[in-house]
């Protein structure tokens, strides 16, 4: 996975998490407690994706600069 793809994945996770926060709050205010954990679960998955993508990006970024 290249660095540009890492950037894209991280920004996609931000977009998805923004939507999930919105939906979670709406579901909580609407007392739809059964679907709140689903949105929350998707958010957690996105958190892991963002974190591991960041580690991948860091590896690529700093190894290149070291070679220079």
């Amino acid at each position: 996975m290249g660095k540009k793809i890492c950037w894209a994945v991280i920004f996609i996770t931000i977009a998805v998490n923004v939507v999930m926060v919105q939906w979670t709050v709406e579901a909580t205010l609407g007392r739809e407690y059964s679907i709140v954990p689903i949105y929350s679960g998707i958010s957690i998955v996105m958190v892991f994706i963002a974190f591991f993508t960041y580690l991948q990006w860091k590896k690529l970024e700093y190894s290149e600069s070291h070679d220079e």
Binding site: I10, T13, I14, N17, V18, M20, V21, T24, Y39, S40, S43, I44, M46, V47, A50, F51
Partner: peptide, 8 residues
């Protein structure tokens, strides 16, 4: 991204 996700 992580803060948003964990806030849920």
């Amino acid at each position: 991204s992580m803060a948003l996700g964990l806030s849920t």
